[in-house]
């Protein structure tokens, strides 16, 4: 079953085309990476799935439903930006999310705090960038959402936090119930986590491929494959 479907989707920002008549479907129960150079349309695709922006033409559906404002009940979106209130403590942020989302699992959130080594009484505004990154992941993964979308989950974080985040993804996602789609530039680092990749450039989907196939058929890593398909990283 496909969890996400793009049918003839075009998205423009003030006349500039970000996605150009895109068609694709992604299966449920996988970890999918959207890869491509900056400005290729990756984040735009992700925001369309999250219902945060609307397509100029075509339809984006999640589980068969149009991806509009109401899809946030079923979709967890991890923004590249910080999205919590700075005057909250870690614990208060969790309680707030718990109040906002029906699928928020308090027990899982507490488990994640321990895993991420975050102190519940710490104030968000006093957290380092790395610790805010950890909190963001904890809040996102504590939701039992069918679809988890992550925009650059590793970007700008130090190697220790990146490793912790990768580990948390490997151990806390329930792929029997959930699908993860993320944009990333840290391709080599994230490759072992991925089932599939979608290569995007200049607003077009160039290729969708299973990671195992890339290695089995071409005997190359994802980074090499990217260079072939997309040309360059940035």
């Amino acid at each position: 079953m496909s969890i996400v479907k793009f049918a003839n989707v075009t998205k423009k920002y003030y006349g500039k085309v970000a996605l150009d008549n895109v068609n694709f479907e992604l299966p449920a129960g996988k970890v999918v990476g959207l890869i491509g150079p900056n400005g290729s349309g990756k984040s735009t695709a992700l925001k369309l799935m999250a219902g945060l922006i609307r397509a100029n033409r075509g339809a984006v559906t999640v589980c068969g439903k149009p991806a509009g404002r109401r899809i946030s009940d079923e979709v967890a979106f991890l923004s590249e930006l910080d999205t919590f209130y700075s005057f909250f403590t870690v614990k208060e942020s969790i309680n707030f999310y718990h109040g906002q989302y029906k699928d928020f699992d308090l027990a899982k959130a507490e488990q994640m705090l321990k895993f991420m080594q975050l102190k519940p009484e710490a104030r968000v505004k006093d957290l380092s960038k790395g610790n805010r990154g950890r909190l963001k992941i904890a809040l996102t993964l504590a939701r039992r959402a069918k679809l988890i979308l992550m925009d650059e989950p590793l970007s700008g974080l130090d190697p220790i936090v990146r490793e912790l985040i990768i580990k948390s993804l490997a151990s806390f996602i329930d792929l029997e119930q959930q699908t993860v789609i993320m944009t990333t530039h840290e391709v080599a680092e994230i490759e072992p986590l991925l089932d599939m990749v979608v290569a995007i450039r200049d607003g077009n989907v160039l290729k969708i491929e299973e990671i195992d196939n890339i290695r089995e058929e071409y005997n190359i890593s994802l980074v090499e494959w990217m260079k072939k398909v997309i040309g360059h990283l940035d």
């Binding site: 580990k167 490997a170 991925l194 195992d212």
Partner: peptide, 17 residues
């Protein structure tokens, strides 16, 4: 599957396979 995934930082589907 979960422990193995965490240990090697790979996707649970990969461990399953």
């Amino acid at each position: 599957v979960r422990e193995m995934g965490g240990q090697f930082k790979v996707n649970p589907n990969t461990v399953q396979r």
